[in-house]
Design a protein around this nucleic acid. Sequence first.
DNA 1: TGACATCTGTCACTTAGTGACATACATCAT
DNA 2: ATGATGTATGTCACTAAGTGACAGATGTCA
Lengths: 202, 202
Amino acid sequence: MEDEDPRLAVSRHAARLFLEHGVAGTSGDDIAAAAGLSKRTVWRYFRTKENCVEPLFSATALRFAATLRRWPRNMSIEDYFQACLGPDHATPEELSDGLLAVRLIARLPDEPALRAAWLMSCQISEEALAKVIGERLHRSAEDFEVRLCAATVIAAVRVVDETVSTAAIKHGQKFTLEEINSMLARSVRAASTLPISDPVGS
Amino acid sequence: MEDEDPRLAVSRHAARLFLEHGVAGTSGDDIAAAAGLSKRTVWRYFRTKENCVEPLFSATALRFAATLRRWPRNMSIEDYFQACLGPDHATPEELSDGLLAVRLIARLPDEPALRAAWLMSCQISEEALAKVIGERLHRSAEDFEVRLCAATVIAAVRVVDETVSTAAIKHGQKFTLEEINSMLARSVRAASTLPISDPVGS
DNA sequence: TGACATCTGTCACTTAGTGACATACATCAT
DNA sequence: ATGATGTATGTCACTAAGTGACAGATGTCA
């Protein structure tokens, strides 16, 4: 039983409250009460109310980056996503976090304050991905070309996430795992500015 | 003498104050006083203090998008940037806005609150660019592929902006116009997921 | 002129967010 | 054990960000 990041726990409560009552309808006290903490501690964890959801976004994004980190060099992106992406490879906790994230993303157009947190988590995952790409290509994560590639790939993932989340939550559209995986693989392949999608020399 | 967006005027004052005294060292009253408005009006213009700089970022980004909108179909991106990007094609006002933006971007690592505004303006320019790409390729701006391309291109521009701004302001590095234009063209070409960089059939 | 809409200021008020200090708990050298 | 140090949290007073409600100014149009 590992003790988790307490911020992530707060983040889950904040996300639920934001979804139920909206951001404006949720006070700092509400979040603190739900998390079983004093208000002061919440403000020590987060600079602003909206930022409370950022760890939730980041957690799911970083899990994706961690999956990419285990991507074998001799495997194409399509094969890897097919093999390792999907509900079967996630813990129940990861699944419920993912669902919360998807529902929040679908609300971004109505809740501009949340978009800042969402974009911020993309920035964080961008840095994580730069490290992964750096490893895969034996380059520095600070290298301009590597950062560029990380940024375009994350941008692609973001657009897919927003598209799928909106379609699923707002229009009730159903997707198969294969559809999402192939959309994601196709988008990342098109977006990447460095040859990461096909097997790379070890 | 056209009456401009009053928000942009406030934005310039806010940017200057943030650069001089930092975000934490600038109050809502300071901004209102500098802009010659009541505090109440400032809070009607902007949801938060940090958001005050967003119109400045957006204005410069939208000027870039407007330039791309005039991109002739029979011209490569390298040739077009070479021909139409640079201080000679900007008004003094645009130049001073650009300088403010660059100095703010260089401060993003120290001022996390400003990053939200910066990323938000990227989002806005992304939508503007989607329209431009849609026109260029005779496609809808809502089309997934078009939005994807806009997102990756803006991501590339963002990384170039951040890299150049940081190098210039923090490390005093000098760039020639040719260097910047070619870095930008190369990055956009690599990042774009649709064939926009070379002449396209009318 | 008067009805209506839009923008701005004033001022009281709520709530997001901070500073200062006290308490609890873990670690670790003695 | 004992005490020194560091880190995490709570309490509470306080500042400043942000809102609601109302009033005055200006512009437009019938």
